[in-house]
């Protein structure tokens, strides 16, 4: 196997008495789309939160390109090329598309101690480009996120993740609350990650979606990995059994 893009080694997480993650070790290859499934409380959200910097592991290490890294907040994760797309998307409804795309990473004309004047022209131009790149048809980057449909919002979230040239894209139940057509678009997007050499980690309750677009399936239950197979070597019945 080639050098994994991202690995976790012996990851543990305790929440005051609850052992939510028990010695989880996984490797994700550069051009692999991995489906992560499991029931509520299986530990998949905990694993994802640790990778995206929302929580810290109690024990264990994370490696990117073989090097151990320290992820203690969302910014660390983003700086390392890990982008996360959330179920209740991480967009501010009262702000424009352009502003949402660059929250926390605004291009600045000049700055002092990290604070400065935003380059609004660049923000507008780049957001138009970023949106066009994911085949989303929105006329104005000044439209408020609150006016978009759920699918369009998810599209903007994907555009944001793509714009910042991620290495690892985590999609945390991105198809919840979406219409069928919009869901298919997201699934098509997960498939296309492969060509861009991006590792995709796709979390879903829906086993059909996972089979549709992932090369490999990892199932979790009670904080442990209970199954890790190539999609071709497994079937839905087997997965239902282990869950």
């Amino acid at each position: 196997m080639t050098q994994p893009m991202i690995s976790v080694r012996n990851l543990h997480k305790w929440y005051s008495g609850v052992h939510a993650l028990k010695d989880v070790s996984l490797d994700f290859a550069p051009n692999e789309a991995v489906g992560l499934i499991g029931d509520n409380g299986a530990g998949k959200s905990t694993l994802i939160n640790i990778l995206s910097g929302a929580q810290e592991a109690s024990e264990g290490e994370i490696l990117i390109d073989g090097r151990p890294v320290n992820i203690s907040n969302p910014r660390d994760a983003m700086d390392l090329g890990i982008e996360t797309i959330y179920q209740y998307n991480s967009m501010v409804p009262t702000m424009s598309i352009a502003r949402n795309l660059f929250i926390g990473r605004e291009p600045l004309k000049f700055s002092l101690f990290g604070l400065g004047v935003m380059d609004r022209k660049k923000m507008a131009e780049e957001s138009v480009q970023a949106i066009a790149d994911v085949d989303l048809h929105l006329r104005s980057p000044d439209a408020l996120i609150g006016e978009l449909s759920g699918g369009q919002r998810q599209g903007v979230a994907i555009a944001r993740a793509m714009h910042f040239k991620s290495k690892v894209m985590i999609l945390d139940e991105p198809t919840n609350h979406l219409a069928v057509k919009e869901t298919n678009k997201v699934i098509g997007f997960v498939r296309s990650l492969k060509e861009m050499n991006i590792t995709g980690i796709f979390i879903s309750h829906n086993i059909h979606h996972v089979f549709d677009c992932c090369d490999r399936i990892v199932a979790m239950a009670r904080g442990e990995v209970v199954l890790d197979r190539r999609t071709n070597d497994t079937n839905m019945d087997e997965i239902m059994d282990v869950l």
Binding site: S52, G53, A54, N73, P74, R75, M78, T84, Y86, Y88, N89, S90, M91, V92, P93, T94, I103, G104, R105
Partner: peptide
């Protein structure tokens, strides 16, 4: 939207 702001670091 506080959760979004936090998620974006």
């Amino acid at each position: 939207f506080l959760p979004a702001a936090q998620a974006m670091g």
